[in-house]
Design a protein around this nucleic acid. Sequence first.
DNA 1: GCTTGCGCTGGAGTCCACTCCAGCTCCTAG
DNA 2: CTAGGAGCTGGAGTGGACTCCAGCGCAAGC
Lengths: 166, 166
Amino acid sequence: MPPPSLAVMTAVTRETSLGIRQVSEETGLSIDTLRWYEREGLLPLVERSADGRRRYPPGALRFIRLVQALRRTGMPVADVRRFVTLGGGELANHPERMALLEQQCAQIEQRMVELRDDLTVVQAKIAQYRELIARGVDCEDELPDDLLAQISADPRLRGVVPGLPA
Amino acid sequence: MPPPSLAVMTAVTRETSLGIRQVSEETGLSIDTLRWYEREGLLPLVERSADGRRRYPPGALRFIRLVQALRRTGMPVADVRRFVTLGGGELANHPERMALLEQQCAQIEQRMVELRDDLTVVQAKIAQYRELIARGVDCEDELPDDLLAQISADPRLRGVVPGLPA
DNA sequence: GCTTGCGCTGGAGTCCACTCCAGCTCCTAG
DNA sequence: CTAGGAGCTGGAGTGGACTCCAGCGCAAGC
């Protein structure tokens, strides 16, 4: 049996498949980036319409979103490619693909912890500014209390740091 | 009164201040990066020992950690510089510095949401592989159910997709 | 039939954030 | 006194991920 004509395929997918512009708007990836991803082997399943333009069926769109999730969460392009080229739906590859994703999950969770910690650091600094402003104090307190104590305890250093109690 | 001699300063800070190597190990930033940050105006308060080597007092170290938090959470180097050059402990600048940090906090929170969403996407895909493996199924299910239904409903497309019920 | 707009291709260019290097100085150990 | 090691400087180089561009084709509207 010959494959169904392109015309038939088109008839079926026209309504659901998207042009590159629409995908770009839908995903936030630039048109250039979509084309570049494809060249780089990150999007293997892009169809073409009769006149050679890209058509993205919904499956492709969802795949793009997965790729996007991987990229946004810091997976390097090379690793995404690895994941993608492992594709083709062969059962034998499923474990490795899964392993890659699980690894990425671990990365993400680690990243989330780091992010939380960094957020705490920034918030602490904000609190400090709030305090300084409230007290109308100019100086940064980059000097820790213990060093300040040390300095004021040392008569040779009297006057090094302004604003210390004599 | 003349400023206290460098020797005296050194005597006080020797024990608490760190060399560049130690700071590198402490923070995970490479030695080159530390120097580069300094050149780029991200670390304005680096002291030098008598022979011209960098000495990082604890205040500097904590400042570096703040810079690191900002960088890791995605603040561009240029913005960190802006934040830093606003420094010097002048009261007038505190509001703007605070504003920058608050903006960054917002970014971080947004990023955390995005990260959670992306994690969900990846986890969903993992679940799907688990399912496919469990069922011993080869194919990706890149085709959504509705499209599958549409295809199997269309007699012209019988046979396009393998494994569909006739 | 011509212009306008969208898309295509291959290749070059850009941006950011480091990273590496040559050639120097200083200090310490043997 | 010399050999090795750590740091210093200014500048060049790198890697990753896009981003831009010239030159072309097709299709629709005037």
